[in-house]
Computed example of a mutant assay.
Amino acid sequence: MIMRIFQVLTKPGKEEEFGRFFHETAIPLMKGTKGIVQVLPGAPRPDSPREFSFVMVWESLDALKAFVGDDYQSPHIDPAEAELVQARTIKHYDLVEG
């Protein structure tokens, strides 16, 4: 399984607007996506009020690629959120089950 960590830094002053997108659009979309085993959305904390994240566990690299395409190492965002986002990062790991 593949663990995908996606982090977003919103533009200053766009936290509330991105928060609505995150809760109303992004979380339901990811939770309903074929090939995802688990979705762990992370909302901002007081010491990092502009940072949002997702930790996603995918069945396989093929399942991830079926959703985002072969360029899975680039952080893809919805066009609706592009004007709200200052920076984004994406990391992938092989999931270690203990």
Rank of each mutant, 00 (worst) to 15 (best):
V96H: 13
A43G: 13
D47V: 02
E97L: 14
A43P: 03
Q7A: 15
H76R: 09
Q73T: 12
I36E: 02
F21D: 00
F18G: 04
V57R: 04
D47A: 02
P41I: 00
L84R: 00
Y93T: 11
V37R: 03
T10H: 10
L61Q: 10
G13F: 08
E81R: 07
L40S: 05
T10N: 10
H76V: 08
A66K: 10
D71W: 02
T33Q: 03
I77G: 05
A66W: 06
K34H: 12
R4W: 11
P44L: 03
D71V: 05
K31D: 06
K91W: 12
Q38F: 08
S60I: 04
K31W: 05
Y72P: 10
A43N: 10
R88Q: 08
P12A: 11
P12I: 12
F22Q: 01
I2R: 01
V85Y: 01
Q86R: 15
V68R: 02
E15N: 13
F22T: 00
D62P: 08
V39I: 12
A43E: 12
D78M: 07
F22M: 03
T25P: 01
P49V: 12
H76L: 09
I36Y: 02
K34A: 10
I2L: 07
I27H: 01
P12N: 10
K65H: 01
A80L: 11
A87I: 02
E15D: 15
R20Y: 05
K34P: 02
M1T: 08
E59N: 07
F67R: 11
S53P: 05
L64H: 02
V37N: 03
M1C: 15
L40V: 04
K11N: 09
T89K: 13
M30E: 02
D62E: 11
F67S: 11
L95V: 12
